[in-house]
Every structure is written in C-alpha cells, then in structure tokens.
C-alpha cells in the first residue's frame, strides 16, 4: 500500500519541469529570479519551493560530468518531524506521505515552535518567515492526488523517466535490479536504510556524498533515539518522587521546627526599622 518514488540520478537532465509542476499544482507563489553566476539557484527548499533541482559538476579522472539532483521531503518511514512535534501536527499516512495537518487536514494545532525544523535530518521543513502567523511548509507527496490514485505532479512532468512512482517494495526491487545490472551504478539505494528508511529512493552513478547527500548516517530512525530516552520519564517521575518523599520525612524527624514567618523580612521593613 505504501507508495514510493525512485529517483535515478543518471537519467536527470536538469530541466526543472518537476519544480514548475510542483509550483503549479500546489499553487505556490513565484519568486522573482535574477541573473546570477550561481547555476544552482535557488539551492535549497524553502516555504515557496518544495522541490529544487541542484546541479553538481563532478570531476572523475579526466572526465567532467554534470549531475542534477531533485531534492524534496524524503517522507521517512518513521519521520523525525512527526515524533518531534508536541501537538502532533505531522502524520505519516498509509499512502506513505508525511503531511502537515494544519494546511492538509485543516487541523490547526501547530504553535510554530520549529522543533520539526531542528529535528529533520534532511533540513526539509521550512517556515513562512514573512507571515504574521506562519505555517511550516514542505513537500506533501501530492497527498490529494495520490489519495485519488494519481501520480505526484512532479512525476507526471518528468520527461526522461528519472522519477518512477509505485509500490515501495516493487520500486526497491527495481532499484536493486538497475544497480546490479549496470556496473556504473554506486551499489547503494539511498533511502533504503538511512534514518530507518524513506519513501523516496535514490540511485546514482556518482558517489552520493559528491552530490549533496549525507552518507554514513545512522540507520536507526530519529524517533527511536528519542524514545530510548523518553521512555524512562514515567519511571523517573515516580521513582525520583518516591526517593524525595522518603528523604524528606526521614530527615524531617531530625530537623528542628522553624517559624519561617519570623525568619524573613522585606528590605523596606528593615530600612524602616533602621530609620527609627
């Protein structure tokens, strides 16, 4: 049931049709662009750009290669943003999409604390900094389309077959088949194991760390780290409370009685007394 997208870096030509499709379908405002030497603009996802295509110039021996990498929310199996949110404003749907409830399901509990942005290992959730009451924004895996059996907007726009949409286990098998049948591929499916696995999977013919991916990261999901600590809370609450209560009554028997009201005085009273 869980859906997935396989991104084959070797096939991307950097046309950015996916970016345009994303903006159009999701009704995101256009930003005014400028002429710049930076061919990688706009660089990173933000509140109005839920997907971006980054460009990398890779030198391999005497060869120079362009590689283009579409980035967006990875839609983790166990999302860090979902576990970090203390109002439970993110949810991983059975279709695989990680969605933000205030804008997606009209359940506006988000307080805008931005802990999701700290928690996300891929730096995806973005904030509407220019709004008075901002929302968190990120790729929603075109939840409205996927729910109706359609493909995400970006996948429909891709002219080269870089993006393949389908059932997760089938796409994982497809990814393995491709990297094993062609020696050019790096023997890794990025997103299979990273942080407990993600719904978006990448395969590439250049090392992932050269095209903006963090490699050698934990294969444990971020929520499981947190839970390892958080699960002790009730025991600490009860145990520490019991120890303190016992100590309090044990030492109290030996302590002398105090009349606290006689011990302390307001500074002004003291000064008044001095004046007299």
């Amino acid at each position: 049931m869980s859906k997935s997208v396989l991104v084959d870096i070797t096939r991307c030509i950097g046309c950015r049709s996916c970016m345009v499709a994303c903006k159009t379908w999701n009704d995101l405002p256009a930003g005014k662009s400028e002429f710049t030497n930076n061919w990688d603009a706009p660089g990173k996802v933000d509140a109005d750009n839920w997907t971006v295509v980054n460009s990398f110039l890779i030198e391999q021996g005497d060869q120079v290669k362009w590689r283009f990498v579409k980035r967006q929310c990875m839609h983790c199996n166990e999302p860090a943003c979902e576990s970090a949110c203390f109002t439970h404003s993110f949810v991983k749907t059975k279709e695989g999409a990680v969605i933000y409830k205030p804008t997606e399901l009209n359940q506006d509990y988000c307080v805008g604390c931005r802990y999701c942005m700290i928690a996300c290992p891929f730096g995806v959730p973005s904030f509407q900094w220019d709004k008075a009451l901002p929302f968190v924004q990120k790729c929603r895996f075109c939840y409205d389309r996927v729910k109706e059996g359609m493909q995400p907007a970006c996948v429909t726009a891709c002219p080269t077959g870089t993006l393949t949409y389908g059932e997760k286990d089938k796409l994982l098998a497809e990814a393995r088949q491709r990297i094993n049948s062609n020696p050019n591929y790096i023997k890794q499916v990025y997103g299979e194991k990273e942080y407990g696995g993600t719904s978006w999977l990448y395969i590439s013919d250049v090392p992932f760390e050269q095209i903006g991916f963090k490699t050698n990261v934990s294969t444990k999901s971020i929520p499981s780290y947190t839970w390892d600590v958080l699960k002790w809370t009730p025991y600490i609450f009860v145990g520490w409370g019991a120890i303190l209560t016992a100590l309090h009554f044990y030492t109290k028997r030996r302590a002398e009685v105090h009349h606290e009201e006689e011990m302390y005085e307001a500074v002004n009273t003291i000064e008044d007394n001095k004046d007299e």
């Binding site: 576990s83 970090a84 949110c85 203390f86 109002t87 439970h88 404003s89 506006d108 509990y109 988000c110 307080v111 805008g112 604390c113 931005r114 802990y115 904030f127 509407q128 009451l133 901002p134 929302f135 929520p223 947190t226 839970w227 600590v229 958080l230 809370t233």
Partner: peptide
C-alpha cells in the same frame, strides 16, 4: 518565539507525547 502564538494554548489539548518538547 513561537510563530503561531494564537495557538499557544493548543498543546494542553493536543498531545504529541512522543515528543521531548511535550515533556518540556
């Protein structure tokens, strides 16, 4: 600091108990 300060009372009613921030 919170962006949606008009929602500041919501966490009392909508519990994300798997969050460290919930405990804080």
């Amino acid at each position: 600091d919170i962006g949606r300060w008009t929602n500041c009372w919501r966490p009392f009613f909508y519990w994300g108990y798997h969050s460290v921030l919930f405990e804080v």
